[in-house]
Design a protein around this nucleic acid. Structure first.
Lengths: 168, 168
DNA sequence: GCAATATACTAGGACATCCAAGGGTTTGGA
DNA sequence: TCCAAACCCTTGGATGTCCTAGTATATTGC
């Protein structure tokens, strides 16, 4: 975590795979490892930008999701499904956002099992400010070329559909 | 998490971005979010395969790295650099692998600050077995087409180099 | 040769994720 | 009608990641 390595560690791993007789899966191994590492880099950038706002990516994602909901409120299970994380992760995020006064829990009007999460005015304002900075500092300077962005969206979209994320 | 969603949540997020006047960064936002989600899916598959071996991905990566070292041993700081994780994460992984009898710590012959991590025979054997299953169950069935694998390696390789991962 | 700086590892804490289990609410079939 | 099954959320536990700080060892510079 510091100075650049003299060689690409993933390319090296691929060579090791090939040397050990696993040539047939060396390329996908390298691609998957590269996805892991890229996610790590991107998450680091995002967290660095959100830190001054007192937000983590998990909390930001929830705020952003709520800010796009017509009523500014969503059932927790809906948020869990849309964010594609475990329900306990949503509980965790809501606890902290609630402590920070950014969201509120309220009972569902007709289903006693369900809890609605609702943005507070503070939460809505913070989501707006954080999104602006995230757009300019991270998404606007992703380092991916326009064509590569399209390729990624296509390749990963196919993958996610095949993995059962969505049926559309 | 569960049943597939009727619509792609990332495509929906992209539409929301565009509707709110952030069209210029909507595409990279979607690509980055897709990388995050893809990583999550792949990590889930990998962890599921490793679980019967009593391994997590973090521990497996360390075992695999050691198994490729000529001497079967590496300094902890070297492992941290090659795996591109924080030194404390390596300490954590080594603690658990050591408890499981898969690696051993030994003092560096000339530098008193440095600790070497060394594979035990058990560790080497387990790495071999886990790799075989990982290759056949995950990397061999990644769901990416051959051309897409090449594209991913190229796009993410450029990204990682620009991010300062390596200089080669 | 010795003090100041740099490097290596570890301990403790904050967060996030998942799983397993538990308590409350709804739904549906006997 | 009524009880079992399904569903929703939360608590508690295990892991992993990072950061900050602290201890020990090397290296550097005067």
């Amino acid at each position: 975590m510091g100075t650049p390595l003299p060689r690409d560690p993933i390319a090296d791993a691929r060579l090791n795979w090939e040397r050990h007789g696993w040539s047939d899966v060396a390329a996908p191994m390298a691609a998957i490892t590269a996805i892991m590492r890229t996610q790590q880099i991107l998450l680091g950038r995002i967290e660095a930008v959100l830190k001054p706002f007192g937000l983590t990516f998990a909390r930001y994602e929830l705020l952003a999701l709520l800010s796009f909901a017509r009523s500014g409120a969503l059932p927790m299970n809906k948020a869990s499904a849309l964010l594609q994380v475990h329900p306990t992760s949503v509980t965790n995020a809501v606890d902290r956002l609630q402590d920070a006064g950014l969201v509120m829990r309220s009972p569902h009007p007709t289903d006693g099992r369900t809890t609605l999460i609702e943005l507070t005015p503070d939460g809505r304002a913070l989501a707006k400010r954080a999104t602006a900075v995230l757009n300019s500092e991270v998404f606007g300077q992703s380092g991916f070329g326009d064509q590569d962005v399209d390729q990624l969206i296509r390749i990963l979209g196919t993958f996610r559909r095949n993995a059962g994320d969505f049926s559309g």
